[in-house]
Structures are given as C-alpha cells and as structure tokens.
Amino acid sequence: MNYIYAVICHKLTEPLIFTIHTLLKSPLSIIILHIDNKTPNNEVIRIKKKLGDHPNLLYVPEKKRIDVRWGGVSQIEVMLLLLRLAQRYNYKYFSLISGDDIPLSSNKSRESFLNIAYSNRIEFIGYNPVHNAQQRLAIKYPSYFYNKDHSIMGKLCRKIFILYAKYFRTLDISHLPTLYKGSTWFTLTHEAVDYILDYVEKNPKYLNSFKYSLCGDEVFFQTIIFNSLFRYKVYNIENNIPDCERGMRYIDWVSGPSFPRELDNSDFIKMKQSGMLFARKVKSNIDQKEFEFFLL
C-alpha cells in the first residue's frame, strides 16, 4: 500500500522542491499538491515547471483550488478537499504538510517506521490539553482577524475586540461535542481519514459551526478524532509531550524570533536528532545541497 503526502503551498520554495523530489524517489509515495487559488498564474507555471510531471504527483485542478486565508474556515476546506482526493487511492497513511516543510529522514526509514506503526494502527495527531478551544468557535470573528498583523496596535485591537465579543458577539456552540485543540499537521491512517469524512457528511452542521472560527483547523479534526475510539490509538497519548511531537513534527515554538521559528541550517542537528517525520517551517531560500544532510 502507498503513503499519501498532501502538500499545501502558495509559492515556489527550496523546501518544496526538495520535499517533492525526495518523496517521489519512492514508488510508494503519492503526492497531492494544492496550490493556493490566489497564487499568480506565472508563479503556478513556475511551480509546475520546476516540480515537473510524474505519475505519482497530482496537482489539484484549478477549478477545485481554494483561496486559503490564514485562520479562516478555508484552511479546513482545503484540508477536507485533500482528504477526499486521497480516497481515490489505496494507502496506509495520509500526511498533511506545507510547502515550508521537509522530511527528516530517507524514504526507506520513514516508510519502515510508518509500516510498523500501521500494524498497530497508530495515529499521529497533536493535542494540547490545557488550551481553551471553546474561544476559537464561540466568538464570531471579523475578517481582519485573518490577517497576520503582529504590530502592537493590531494586538491591542484584537484584545479589545475579544473582551467586547465575549458579551455581544458570542455564538451558541452547545450542540458541539467536547472540543479539542492541537497542531494542524498530522499523519493519519486511511481508516481515520474515512471516519473523519464520514462524520462530516453525516453531521453537516459541524462544518458550518466553524464558519466564523479563528484557527479552527486546529480544533476541527482533533475534536472528531478525540471524541472517537481513535483517541486510544494516538501516538504517545498517555505521555505529556508537545502536541506537535504527537503528530511527529519538529516545530520550534520557543526560540523565536518568529513563532513558530523559521528553521535554518543552525537548527539542522536538533531537527535530525528529534526523530520526527517532518520539520516546519523551514526558510524558503536554503540551498538544496544542505537538505541532503537529512537523507544520510
């Protein structure tokens, strides 16, 4: 059986080139690539020219591409689109990654790890038990929240709005199951993917409840999985580890200056020693030859 890698990107980067070309060296890799619908056509052409044609590389058709906005429901919609496209294939695991991510081991090592994990149907998805997921959905967020404005004024405006919204812009989410929050990026068995899509189809109000959410993509899939029997198969669920590590991703939320940190070659040793499947997010202009370090 195959391994699906669903990639969300909006521009051509060195990590994207390395990741696609590396994964395609394995006959078991199937890549579904979504290029953001707002990406200029000349950039789309550059991406396709650089990545090339391959029988195991599927570009999401232009008519199905989504304009993905940070923090908005469109992030959930593109993830559901990729999950549905994956159902065309026979596969063991579906891994969601971005154009800024790279694999941290050879195809052989990663496939060996996942093959053993699949024999026990282990799911790799993050979960943060101390996070208040309710606030992500209980407020009707305005459109300006979906801009990454890190200025002091921007942060102040958002804080003031939330104080106001708790009284005047609240939404009734009492119909929803217990909410769980975790890292967006996951690796799930085809059984878990089928369960998610079946749940969404049978509960149409569930997706609609995320229409005005903020970063609801970090709640949508976790809530379905952790309210099901799949929760007992989540990797390291009994241990207190960072939720991104439960998804087998190396993500630095500590060092800064950006959060998450943009990883460069000074992070390579820690990335390699982490034992994770993928790292994000990696600086876009790192020389291709430096990435070979992870395939040794």
Rank of each mutant, 00 (worst) to 15 (best):
Ile20Asp: 09
Ile20Val: 15
Ile20Gly: 08
His21Cys: 10
His21Ile: 13
Leu23Trp: 10
Leu23Gln: 12
Leu23Asp: 15
Leu24Cys: 15
Leu24Glu: 12
Leu24Pro: 13
Ser26Pro: 10
Ser26Glu: 12
Pro27His: 09
Leu28Lys: 15
Leu28Ala: 14
Ser29Lys: 11
Ser29Pro: 13
Ile30Phe: 06
Ile30Ser: 02
Ile31Arg: 04
Ile32Cys: 11
Ile32Ser: 04
Leu33Ser: 03
Leu33Lys: 03
Leu33Ile: 13
Leu33Pro: 09
Leu33Met: 09
His34Gly: 08
Ile35Cys: 00
Asp36Val: 05
Asp36Pro: 00
Asp36Phe: 00
Asn37Arg: 10
Thr39Ile: 10
Thr39Pro: 08
Thr39Ser: 11
Asn41His: 09
Val44Glu: 08
Val44Thr: 06
Ile45Gly: 00
Ile47Lys: 09
Ile47Asp: 02
Lys49Asp: 09
Lys49Phe: 03
Lys50Gln: 05
Leu51Val: 06
Leu51Cys: 03
Gly52Tyr: 14
Asp53Thr: 07
Asp53Cys: 05
His54Cys: 10
His54Gly: 12
His54Lys: 04
Pro55Tyr: 12
Pro55Gln: 15
Pro55Leu: 14
Asn56Met: 00
Asn56Ile: 02
Asn56Ala: 02
Asn56Lys: 02
Tyr59Trp: 08
Pro61Met: 07
Pro61Ser: 10
Pro61His: 12
Glu62Asp: 09
Glu62Trp: 00
Lys63Cys: 08
Lys64Thr: 02
Arg65Met: 05
Arg65Val: 01
Arg65Gly: 01
Ile66Glu: 01
Ile66Lys: 03
Ile66Phe: 01
Asp67Phe: 10
Val68Pro: 02
Val68Met: 02
Arg69Pro: 08
Arg69Leu: 14
Arg69Gly: 04
Trp70Asn: 04
Trp70Ala: 01
Gly71Phe: 06
Gly72Asp: 15
Gly72Glu: 15
Val73Lys: 09
Ser74Gln: 03
Ser74Cys: 06
Gln75Lys: 15
Gln75Pro: 11
Glu77Pro: 00
Glu77Met: 04
Val78Gly: 00
Leu80Gln: 01
Leu82Gln: 02
Leu82Ala: 00
Arg84Gly: 03
Ala86Asn: 02
Ala86Ile: 00
Gln87Asp: 03
Gln87Asn: 09
Gln87Gly: 03
Gln87Pro: 05
Arg88Glu: 13
Tyr89Arg: 06
Tyr89Lys: 03
Asn90His: 11
Tyr91Asp: 06
Tyr91Asn: 06
Lys92Leu: 11
Lys92Ser: 13
Phe94Met: 05
Ser95Arg: 10
Ser95Lys: 05
Ser95Glu: 14
Leu96Ser: 13
Ile97Ala: 14
Ser98Cys: 06
Gly99Lys: 15
Gly99Cys: 13
Asp100Val: 07
Asp100Met: 09
Asp100Glu: 14
Asp101Phe: 07
Asp101Val: 12
Ile102Ala: 07
